[in-house]
């Protein structure tokens, strides 16, 4: 992958996650509105809402992992020279890559289980596995993005731009 297409890929994943945050807010807002104005509850809005949440989080984890925006303890890192900072970053990213790869592998098992066990939504009896599968693809992209991050950290540190302000609370 060229540098440009890598960046495009990363941005796309981040936008997908961001779009889902908006969707979840909209789903809640519309549900509340319909309930209070028309005493009407959208069938399956609960199940759909929580599955959208799952999608948003896994796609978000992809973006967050790439940006180095996870919650970390910077006590040591903040007090060593840039050389050691880079070594620490490489180590941490390798651990991250390992953990998320294992997570993605075990999640596949979970998605397959949901499909095989025929789990459906409460109101409309839609199969739930497609939602889980979309969430899972988010985790797959997390593995890809962390791999890109590791590659860049090791070989092209100049391409890394972690945000100044880390995500906290």
């Amino acid at each position: 992958m060229t540098r440009h297409s890598m960046d495009r890929f990363i941005d796309t994943i981040e936008w997908i996650a961001a779009a889902f945050v908006g969707l979840v807010a909209l789903d809640i807002f519309v549900s509340v509105l319909l309930r209070n104005l028309f005493n009407y509850a959208i069938p399956d809005s609960f199940d759909i809402g929580r599955m959208l949440l799952g999608i948003l989080i896994f796609w978000g984890i992809a973006a967050t992992s790439y940006r180095g925006a996870h919650i970390t303890v910077d006590l040591v890192w903040g007090n060593v020279s840039p050389r050691y900072q880079r070594w620490i970053d490489v180590f941490a990213t390798l651990v991250l890559l390992f953990v998320v790869t294992v997570q993605t592998w075990t999640l596949f098992d979970k998605v397959r289980g949901t499909y095989r066990d025929n789990v459906t939504t409460f109101d409309m009896h839609m199969p739930t596995w497609p939602f889980f599968a979309v969430a899972w693809i988010g985790d797959v992209s997390a593995v890809l993005l962390i791999a890109i991050r590791t590659y860049r950290l090791v070989f092209h540190p100049e391409d890394m731009h972690d945000p100044k302000l880390k995500a906290t609370e």
Binding site: Y40, A41, I42, P43, F46, D47, F122, D123
Partner: peptide
């Protein structure tokens, strides 16, 4: 449970989980 949820839907109510 899921059966009562079906019942509620059939009777024209909606389920809140």
């Amino acid at each position: 449970d899921a059966t009562i949820a079906n019942f509620v839907t059939q009777l024209g109510g909606t389920n809140v989980q």
